[in-house]
Nucleic acid binder design. Structure first.
Lengths: 127, 127
DNA sequence: CATTTACTGAACCTTTCGGTAAACTATTGG
DNA sequence: CCAATAGTTTACCGAAAGGTTCAGTAAATG
């Protein structure tokens, strides 16, 4: 699977509150499928589909022990998604900092907001 | 919209390579719908649907000027998604650090890997 | 005014998503 | 051995995703 496809799967997996809850639950430690199902008013097959989607996205590892299946978290793909977001937010913040610098350098006439508010400039970009 | 729903929309919006490319493009500065469509071998209505999904997720703001529509990025929802991932990865790293500490404290008999490798322990959790 | 340009809307198609019910497999425990 | 438990598979459903085509609207432009 390419990086892009892997990221597709990761973001898609996290785009559902049921699955995000499961990730949070697994952060506390391993859990069986039944334990993951417990808080939800949902049939087992429905739960299974969610778990499988997490497994396919590489976020969860399953291990069968007798008749029970224990699930464990593998945060590596989440790390990639986080890195993608981080990279973009950093870029954005640099843009805003450059805008700040620009405004500071030209603060002869008009007083501007921002420098705390991080609001979006509704005029042209300065970078 | 609740926080959870907003995060659903954000993650779902980013779960598509076309839309991730659009976000990257908009990071460079504003763009019209046509400019966003340009690199894709895709009909305009298809592009429109992607743009609208980004707008509905709050990631993009549209402003009509004459007959063209300029799109601008609003990274606030991305910030929320990033924070969610960050929180969870931090939690996970703390767990691994605790495991390191545990292993260091009990390193009488067995030599273990990790402390660099960040591999997943296949036995019970220590936290 | 006529035509291109830029976007929008509506209808349609196929695949995936999120769920169900019911039947099945394989442990585990009495 | 029998029954409860844990999980899986299959078939089905309605809604949403991601795409298409074709027609429509409204602003620029010759």
């Amino acid at each position: 699977m390419t990086d892009s496809q892997s990221m597709d799967a990761t973001f898609a997996a996290l785009a559902d509150p049921t699955r995000r809850w499961m990730v949070e639950r697994l952060l506390q430690g391993e859990a069986t499928v039944s334990e993951l199902a417990e808080p939800f008013d949902m049939s087992m097959p429905a739960v299974l589909k969610h778990v499988n989607k997490l497994v396919e996205a590489g976020l969860v590892i399953r291990e069968k022990q007798g008749r029970t299946v224990t699930c464990a978290l593998n945060p590596a793909p989440m790390d990639d998604a986080q890195a993608w977001l981080q990279k973009h937010l950093d870029f954005w913040n640099n843009r805003l900092d450059a805008l700040d610098a620009y405004l500071a350098q030209h603060k002869d006439a008009d007083d501007h907001d921002r420098a705390d508010g991080r609001n979006i400039p509704d005029d042209k970009t300065y970078l």
